[in-house]
Design a binder for these strands. Structure first.
Lengths: 270, 270
DNA sequence: CGTAAGATTGATGCATATCAATCCCAGTGG
DNA sequence: CCACTGGGATTGATATGCATCAATCTTACG
């Protein structure tokens, strides 16, 4: 129906591997239909079922799912596993901009320029669903309800980025780490895992890059939380002991700001 | 064809005004067809022309185009004027996340939840094109090439947000201000205005909120640039004297980082 | 011309980066 | 089986960028 793009090779440890035509991903025997993909993405159910099926691909840890500059062809939906998405700015400085996991969508940033603007690397073994963009386009055309869902999906990604911006711009290091832990806990809960005991799949350096702080600050902050009894940490194993306290952590000083917006009856979400 | 939603009243100075049914925007006599809107958005031309026309609405300075929580109905395309887009987090802290201007699209963040997640306020008088989302949906269905353009447009917004995240996470205050000036200069150039002499339409506080620094730091940094001869500043009037130097400003320390990514022939955009 | 909002500039303190020295642990090879 | 090894994590000492507080200064506007 459509061909598989060989992206990364199957060489587990060491630095991320690159496209090597002679080696391929392990193509799973798993296929998902449209409804299953929508469920995975937590999008409203599609009424008009089709018999279209989407292929899964297995990645080992430390492999690239897509790379910067590579021609855009697929969107990817994470079925299982953990990844990181990275940008590289013109100075060569790389920054983590996300830690995709089950139900997350990868590759949207490639639509505009027909090339991926980011690269996504697996942190663990992963099972990923391939969505050929052409198929998505034609689906949207044939089934109006799926088209709306696609718009919605992209809007959701945008909202998430806005939250990220807000976090980076408004909160001190401690609050950023706290919020990071809480959002991880939520994600694990949604996946049916424990929301209080979990393992980080990324290094302190990657967390620091994502949160815009140094890796030492991440480490120190976690230790400080542990000292206060909010969590317990042992290397990458985290236990949330007082989620409420973590959730309500704010930037320390009050910052005058937010004046001039006294009671605003119309602004509150209904 | 479709009705105009009365959003803000016509009361110029003072804090932003709210929906007041008894007063309305000035409805322009101007209408744009699809091709004109696409040109404005710098999207590839549409071949299949239709006779659909989109209404313009005039806003005075300090009016809200849309507010947080308000039911999502329209996307907005800026035809002229300057605005700011603001989020308010759960602590009540508000942050500027963008300064839309000619050719920019507003309201995408409302698609997901059927309510706007941000609010956009005019900084100057503005002329804005109303795009009813329902019309966009049906257009996408009827004309495949426009559907692709819509995806592309949303992808572009996502890319911009990624750049913002990268700026906030990777650069020192000085570099952020420098990049801000450069991006403004580029935008003015694209609009056919001078890229070296222009007026800021926003306050230092708004710039600071956008860049994640204090208003004093913005002011000081501009003064420092002026002292070094990179720009000249007089209140909101800016003259860029050495764009090259501004563009190449980086975070001061080298930060080890970016190790372990030696020559990567595949990563460079082709 | 008076007033208030915005902008500038200075003084000071703190949060966080940076540098540096272990420490811990998983993987590896003898 | 166990010491070796190296990447990651922790922790401490120090430096500094930037926020904060505070005092003018400037400009727009009524």
């Amino acid at each position: 129906m459509y061909s598989i793009l060989p992206v990364a090779a199957a060489r587990p440890p060491g630095p991320p591997t690159y496209a090597e035509p002679e080696r391929r991903h392990r193509i799973s025997r798993l296929w998902s239909n449209l409804q299953e993909v929508f469920d995975l993405l937590r999008l409203p159910a599609v009424l008009s079922t089709t018999d279209i099926r989407f292929q899964h691909v297995q990645f080992k840890a430390r492999q690239r799912v897509h790379m910067i500059g590579q021609p855009f062809e697929f969107l990817y939906v994470v079925n299982s596993g953990f990844l990181k998405t990275v940008t590289v700015d013109e100075t060569g400085h790389e920054q983590v901009i996300g830690f995709p996991m089950k139900g997350d969508l990868l590759g949207i940033d490639g639509i505009q320029d027909k090339r991926y603007a980011t690269e996504t690397v697996t942190l663990t073994n992963c099972d990923i669903v391939l969505i050929p963009f052409k198929v998505m386009i034609s689906l949207g055309r044939a089934h109006p309800d799926t088209q709306s869902s696609f718009y919605s999906m992209m809007s959701r990604e945008l909202l998430r980025k806005q939250v990220t911006v807000s976090n980076l711009g408004s909160f001190c290091a401690e609050a950023r780490v706290a919020r990071f832990l809480c959002s991880l806990a939520e994600r694990f809960m949604e996946m049916g895992c424990s929301g209080t005991h979990f393992d980080l799949r990324m290094t302190r350096e990657e967390i620091g890059s994502y949160l815009g702080v140094s890796l030492e600050t991440v480490s120190r902050t976690l230790s400080a939380f542990a000292a206060r009894g909010l969590i317990s940490v042992k290397q990458r194993t985290i236990e949330i002991r007082n989620q409420q306290a973590l959730r309500t952590l704010r930037r320390l000083p009050t910052r005058r700001q937010q004046r001039k917006r006294g009671g605003n009856p119309l602004t509150a979400p209904a």
